[in-house]
């Protein structure tokens, strides 16, 4: 799924990484616990979270994720946006709640399972 499709499905605002919206995400993970994100997902692209602190950006960076969506209208700080820009990660914010956001992406074809990009 293209990042722009994620944006449209969730009616999200793009906070940084406007030029990367044509990039593909291959799977997704929704969690407020960063250690769970680090434990259970291997190769993915998108993180949905209601947690707002710089460790969210670092966690995504460690996992080579390309996009973070903040649910429940959460907004990251300027510092977080700066970190994400540096790491080449797209940040978005949506008013949609976690359950609906995950469900919407899932039924439209973005499932949570591991898909390797390099075959």
């Amino acid at each position: 799924m293209k990042i722009i499709t994620v944006k449209e499905l969730l009616d999200a605002d793009v906070l940084c990484g406007e030029d990367q919206l044509e990039e593909e995400v291959h799977s997704a993970c929704g969690s407020d616990m960063m250690s769970d994100v680090l434990a259970y997902v291997k190769e993915q692209g998108l993180l949905l979270t209601g947690l707002v602190n710089p460790q969210v950006i670092r966690t995504a960076e460690m996992m080579d994720m390309v996009c973070i969506v903040f649910v429940r209208a959460k907004r990251p700080s300027e510092e977080m946006i700066r970190l994400a820009e540096k790491a080449g990660i797209v940040l978005m914010s949506t008013e949609t709640r976690m359950y609906e956001a995950c469900g919407s992406l899932y039924v439209n074809g973005l499932n949570g399972k591991v898909v390797r990009r390099d075959g």
């Binding site: 407020d32 616990m33 960063m34 250690s35 769970d36 680090l38 434990a39 979270t49 947690l51 602190n53 460790q55 969210v56 966690t59």
Partner: peptide, 24 residues
């Protein structure tokens, strides 16, 4: 053990302290 943690609730609210650090 996964899930065992001595971290405080402040740490939990930051997204860590789920008892996954050493297991990870």
């Amino acid at each position: 053990q996964e899930g065992y943690s001595t971290a405080t609730s402040t740490i939990h609210s930051l997204g860590f302290g789920a008892g996954m650090g050493l297991p990870n």
